[in-house]
Every structure is written in structure tokens, then in C-alpha cells.
Write a protein that binds this DNA or RNA. Structure first.
Lengths: 350, 350
DNA sequence: CGGAAGACCGAAAAGGTTTTCAGGAACGTA
DNA sequence: TACGTTCCTGAAAACCTTTTCGGTCTTCCG
């Protein structure tokens, strides 16, 4: 590893590792001024084609790459954004992050990733650091889909993704859980199911409430009752999926479909249905929520599920942020529509 | 959102959003020179306590935060590192990332996250961008635990994590898969199991080979044969876990333990064992690999498994990088020991 | 041939900070 | 009083790039 100071003048030591020559070196090698070198490399018009070629050649010979820090200092734009998440290990931040990374072409914008781990203090800390780094904008991804405290007035635009800000003056992008619930039940109804039950997670989650609401909406629209007499709220775990399914079957053995509030729960549901020798999807259809691949694809049978389009959400957040950086930022809550992923756990009844 | 140019001079407009006042403003308000202000805020000794207090107070009044870009320009150190991963959605990058984030206190160092998605071109691209941003170092996380091409000579230190570099002159940090295999079998043996089989994933993965080797080692040491007559290589999926278990039970119905090469496979194994009414762990113990929480904890029964200590690996990578930034970098391959996570799927035989 | 227009190029300022070095004030000593 | 110390403070250079603006050179027209 050749590190340490390298004399910029000594150009006779062969191809050196990229990244440490300056514009001055390039200019000197090309026999022009620094100003001209800059203009040549940035496709400014006031430079002769021949001169430009000389400069470009010199830049390549030195494998010059401009110092983004210095550029940022002048242009007052760092070309970076901060992504402040609260649960990195959670499966929600990651797709959003990927979408965002995707939307900022890597040429223009790089992403600082910061995980606050749900600690408020750590969040303030990260925020300070990011502002100090002069990020051009911020995307805040919460840990759960309920409102979170606003960061308040900042010198850069902020977009809240997944968890909306509690301040309606901020711009938040969230998934449409009501729509997702509706979509799930709609799918079951279209495939001939009539006795549909709903098992879901922690009732303190807005998402659980919303999905249930969407499901009930769609049932009501069709004039169908909810099978099992109630929404089975509990926990976001396979164990609860198993437990609830057992209780549900006791209460109402004749169900022909179960809408699970998450893929985890759906796995538990499937487990008990197998045990009870109820064929899926022939006798009972099962639909999950989240499209968490590892769970949904590996299920037996593979799980039909609702995908919240988190990547799309990330992409959109990036776009909105980009637009806001040199325009003005909107406000309010924008929702992203969910998407049905059809696999084998639901199928038309004969 | 109040954005756009804010006059730095106009200080009478109340508490303004943090982040846009400069050292000059602070100096002016405190009635000292820029140089003195800088020294006061950086705890340089050559400034009177009284003056320092004045400066600090002024800085707080303006909610001054130093421009890191400018600092980096001078100190030749940006306080950033790049984390170049190849599979963000993969479960391996994330814990490593968290460990790294953890080790760099957020005060000092921020992390640029870049996902190349297995595309070589995109990787070069990201690399250019990161060098242009003058990152102080680089951590490269591969997609699978086999050797990957070195990035070559770069002007900053590089650490390869998870996937070692193919150039022994680079420093690579990897998990000890042989040790993991040995640890798994050791655990089973200690708990009285004698007829131990091994079902694992894609044989083209070095990790699969290594884990198998570790397992066989430990068996040989004990003078035990491998139950099932062979290592069952296949795919890293539940489906293969199920299929292999069925074949295995046909070949050798008397096994009392199965070591699965991943938690995914282990889930498949458990599934079939239930179906065949073989009690876990009473009749057959099952141990997985990866400690992928969502799979291991939710399993029935919860899965004993091997944790590769990826967070620790990330932390260590960060430490090594940090040390390398102003020292010189080591080389070769360093391994991180795995850790046994005991849950209910293994238990002593009576 | 004189002059104007146009095409290129370079000097210099700016961006915000750190650091060096020289100067000034206060103080003690001869 | 004159001088040497010790402490503080401030001017200025440096980091690397972009951009403005003035200057030089060529070319073309009258």
C-alpha cells in the first residue's frame, strides 16, 4: 500500500494510484493556466478544441479526479444527502435505501447512511454531523409506520419516508396500508372466497389498524361478513400466526381464506393449516403482507402477498428531495400504492 | 421550509436554523479575529479562558457548526469512509455495516454507502466517486464469502470484509467457516448425539465446503462417521432442506441430529421432521447456521445456530481501517471466530 | 494599413477553515 | 528606566476549485 505524501511535482514515477493530483498539476503538464484547465475539463465553451484535448490528455495521464470538497466549497452544494434511519436491521429501511441510492445517480450524489437505533440523542448527534458536512438534503426513515417527531426547521430540505412527520408542514411519503388491506381482500374475493378472516399484529401499530380497515371496507362493499367474528390482533410473529389460526379454526371451521397482516404471521398460519390437514389453497387461501422474500418465496406453498413498494418509495423520496434542493419543498403526506404479488397460496376455487 | 440565501450579517432575526453561519460571523460577534475564534473552538491552548468563553457563547448564539468541507480541504482528511457493498439486500452486508457504523463514532467519521449490485462497472463508478470525495478509507463487502478481485493499488487504505481479496497483499477480514462447522458438530456431540448428518447449500460456495470440512474434522476427531453417508450439498433454500431431509431419512432413519448449512435449510429440515412426527430435539436435534433472527427465533422450536459475528467483523474492519489511515496497513487474511447461539432445537439426550 | 470584433487565455477572488509567525501588551527584573 | 519574558491576538498563507473579468492575439473589414 503506497500511502503518505506523494510529491505532486515528480511525474516521472510511472502510473501512480488515482486520486491525488490536483488541477494545478494537470495545468502545468498541459502547459496552460489552472483556469483554462478547469474550463477545458468542465466543457466550458471558451477554450479551443486543441487546448481542451491537451488538458484532457494531461488529466488522464495523471489520473486526475477533482476534489469534491473544494468544488462543494465554491458551488455551495456538497452533492451529498443524509439518510437518517432508525432501524437499519429492520427490513423496511433497506429497500427504501436502495431505491434512494438508485434514484440519485452515483455520479452526482452520494448518500451518508446514519442509523440512530431509535435513540433520540444519537439522532440529534447524527443530525449535527450531517449538517456540518453540508448535506444538500435529508431523508428520514422511521422504524415503524406511525408518525414520528419532526426534526423541525432545518437549513436543508427534509423528506420523511415510511414514518410520516407529526408536523403537517413537512413532506412525508408513506405506504398506503388501507389500500393494501383492500387489495388483499379484493384479490381473495375475486378468486371466489367468501369466508375471509383476518389475523394481524400489534394493534398499537397504525399499520395494523389501517390494513384491517381496508380489509373491512372491501368486505362491506361486497356485503360480506368478516369470518371469525373479529380482527385477530396480536403480535407480528409466527407464533401468534399459529395461535390465532388455531383459535380461529375452533371458532369458525368453515373459513376459506385468511388475510395475514404480515408474511411472518402468514407463515404461522400456513404451519397450522398444514397440521390440520387443510389444503392451501384448495380449501383455504392465504395471503400475506410485506413480500418479505425470504419468508414468502420459501413458504409452502409460496405466498401471495402485498408488496408495499418500498423501493419505489425510496426512489420517490430521492426525486422529491432532488427537486426540493433547488426548488421549494411541498408538504403534507403522500402515499405510495401497494402491489399484489401473486404466488401459489391463493388460487381460484373451482 | 425557509431555504435560500440567508444574509450572514443580519443577526437580529432571532434563532435561525442551524448550520449556515461561518466562523467569520462568530469572530465578529465575539469581537475577535477569525484565527482566535478557530483556536478558541478547537481547544487550542494559546487563548485566554475569558476570550474562549466569549467565542463559545457567540458560536452558540449563532448555532455555528464548522464547515467540514473546508476543514477537510485543509487537514487533508475528510472524515469520511466509503462502504462499497455488493449486496445490500443480502443479510450479510447489513450487520457488517452496523458494526462499522458503530465503531466509527458518528462524531468523527461518516459513512458513504454504495451498493454496486454485483455490477463491476457500477463498482468502478462508485469507486471513482468515492475517491473524488476524498474518503479516508474504504471497506469492501462482497456478496458471498469467496475471494473477489482486488481493487488494486489505491491512494487510500482498503479493507475487504466478508469476501477476501484475491490479492494476498490486501487485508481481508473473513468469518471462520471451518471453525463454525466444527463448533456446530462439537455442540451436538457434547449433547450426546452420535448419528449426525449434514445438509448444506450450493457446493460452489467456499463457505459450504468449509463448514462441511469443519464438521467432518470434528466427527473424525471423535471417531464418528457422518450419518447419511455423505454431505448433502444442494441449494441455500428451505425447499432443498425439505427434499434433502426426506432423502436422508430414507437412507438412514436412525439419525439423531442434523447440522444444516444455513438457517433457511434448517427451517426446511424442521418442517419435514414435524411431518414425519420426529420430535425435535427429543429424537432429532437440529442446528442451523447464520443466526438469521427472523428464521431462527420464529422456528418451532427456536433454532440453535451458529452466528458468524458479522457485526464484530464490521467493527473490526472499522478499527483496522482507522488504524491504517494514519499508520500502515497490514495484509493477509484475518478470521473472526463464530459463536454458538443456543436455543431449543438442540438439547441433551436423556 | 488602421481599427473593431471575436476567440482564447490567465490573473485573481472567492468559498470557510486551520496554522504559522510576527507583533503587542503586561509584567517582572536589573 | 530599559530590557527580556510570557501570554494573547491577528494577519496571512494554504488547501483546491470555479468563475469573472481584463488582456492578448488573430482575423476581417473598410
Amino acid at each position: 500500500m503506497s500511502r503518505g505524501p506523494i510529491e505532486p511535482g515528480s511525474s516521472a514515477d510511472g502510473p501512480r494510484p488515482a486520486g491525488r493530483s490536483t488541477l494545478r498539476d494537470v495545468a502545468k503538464l498541459a502547459g496552460v493556466s489552472i483556469a483554462t484547465a478547469s474550463k477545458a475539463l468542465n466543457n466550458q465553451p471558451q477554450v479551443r478544441a486543441e487546448t481542451r484535448a491537451k488538458v484532457i490528455q494531461a488529466a488522464e495521464a495523471l489520473s486526475f479526479s477533482p476534489n469534491t470538497l473544494a468544488q462543494g466549497l465554491i458551488t455551495q452544494r456538497s452533492g451529498t444527502v443524509g439518510l437518517l434511519t432508525s432501524d437499519l436491521e429492520g427490513r423496511f429501511s433497506i429497500p427504501i435505501l436502495m431505491g434512494a441510492e438508485d434514484a440519485f445517480g452515483s455520479d452526482q450524489t452520494s448518500v451518508f447512511l446514519c442509523d440512530a437505533r431509535g435513540d433520540n440523542l444519537r439522532e440529534r448527534h447524527h443530525l449535527r454531523a450531517l449538517l456540518s458536512r453540508r448535506v444538500d438534503g435529508l431523508i428520514v426513515v422511521g422504524a415503524r409506520p406511525d408518525a414520528r417527531p419532526s426534526l423541525g426547521e432545518l437549513p436543508v430540505p427534509v423528506i420523511y419516508a415510511y414514518s410520516p412527520s407529526d408536523n403537517p408542514a413537512d413532506l412525508s411519503l408513506v405506504t398506503d396500508n388501507v389500500g393494501g388491506g383492500r387489495l388483499a381482500v379484493d384479490h381473495l374475493i375475486r378468486h371466489g372466497r367468501r369466508r375471509i378472516a383476518h389475523i394481524t399484529g400489534d394493534p398499537s401499530y397504525g399499520a395494523a389498524q389501517d390494513r384491517a380497515r381496508g380489509a373491512l371496507d372491501r368486505l362491506a362493499q361486497e356485503g360480506l361478513p368478516l369470518a371469525g367474528d373479529q380482527v385477530w390482533f396480536g403480535a407480528w410473529s409466527e407464533a401468534w400466526g399459529r395461535g390465532a389460526t388455531r383459535m380461529l379454526l375452533q371458532r369458525d371451521p368453515g373459513i376459506d381464506a385468511i388475510f395475514a397482516g404480515s408474511d411472518e404471521i402468514a407463515r404461522g398460519v400456513l404451519d397450522v393449516l398444514h397440521q390440520e390437514k387443510l389444503a392451501v389453497p384448495a380449501q383455504v387461501a392465504v395471503i400475506g403482507f410485506d413480500n418479505w422474500n425470504i419468508l414468502a418465496v420459501n413458504a409452502r406453498p409460496p405466498l401471495t402477498t402485498i408488496d408495499m413498494n418500498l423501493e419505489e418509495l425510496g426512489r420517490l423520496a430521492a426525486q422529491r428531495l432532488f427537486a426540493a434542493i433547488d426548488g421549494t419543498l411541498g408538504s403534507g403526506i403522500e402515499t405510495i400504492g401497494p402491489r399484489l404479488i401473486t404466488r401459489e397460496s391463493t388460487a381460484p376455487l373451482d
